[in-house]
Simulated assay, not measured.
Amino acid sequence: MRILLRDYPREAWPGHPNFAASIQNWMGAHDMFRQLGREVRLNTQSYLNKDRSAEDSADRLAYYGNLLVRNLHGHHGWEDHSFFPELSAADGRFDAGLETLETDHLALDNVLDRLTRQANRVVKLTQLDEAQAYEESGTLLETASEIEAFLARHLVDEEDLVVPILLHHKLRG
């Protein structure tokens, strides 16, 4: 699956003539997901360290957690139903890699659903029983850390497979 990556190494992408604004925007969305995942984890850690109030943490969790979950679901739904089929049509050699990425998306859906349930519970408990909200934030931190690590691996895998295909076949330009 790394055949084209040898011909189109990551460090050469920005200067490549086929590195279109649409590719930059797609990778920019990936950077946003990394930042949002980090923000959710750091916010929860700050609350557990008592560096942030329960109310402030709950507000930030609701805002950034919602952005992360909603945008990730939309982004990888679009990839699975539109973008990856376009790539497959352009170069079927990479179908196994695209299928692996789609499987990752299913796994990510499960983790995001868990994060949503946990975050909603912590936000509600902040108003009802702050001690319990604090206690349950430990589990939330584990899930936020899991998402951040998952995204760190998955997004690099996705970029390393997809961008060389786009550059080689002059797609999205």
Rank of each mutant, 00 (worst) to 15 (best):
I3W: 07
R6E: 08
D7V: 01
R10T: 08
P14L: 05
H16S: 04
H16Q: 06
P17C: 04
N18L: 02
N18I: 01
A21H: 05
I23V: 13
M27S: 03
M27D: 05
A29Q: 13
H30F: 03
R34G: 13
Q35N: 15
Q35Y: 08
Q35V: 07
L36P: 01
G37C: 11
N43S: 11
T44R: 01
K50D: 13
D51W: 05
A54D: 15
D56S: 11
D59F: 10
L61I: 09
L61Y: 06
L61A: 12
Y63S: 15
G65C: 06
L67H: 12
L68E: 14
L68D: 12
R70Y: 10
L72V: 05
L72P: 03
H73Y: 12
E79D: 08
H81Q: 11
F83T: 08
F84V: 00
F84W: 13
P85A: 09
E86Y: 08
L87T: 03
L87N: 06
S88F: 03
A90R: 01
A90E: 10
D91E: 15
F94K: 05
G97K: 00
E102R: 10
T103V: 09
L108T: 04
V111C: 03
V111D: 13
A119R: 14
R121S: 14
V123C: 12
V123S: 09
K124H: 13
Q127C: 02
Q127G: 07
A131D: 15
Q132K: 12
E135R: 14
E135C: 05
E136K: 09
S137R: 04
T139F: 03
L141A: 10
T143M: 08
T143R: 06
T143Q: 05
A144H: 08
S145E: 15
E146F: 12
E146A: 13
E148H: 11
E148S: 10
E148R: 08
A149Y: 04
A152H: 09
H154G: 11
V156T: 14
E159G: 03
I165F: 02
H169I: 01
H169C: 04
K170G: 01
G173C: 11
G173N: 11
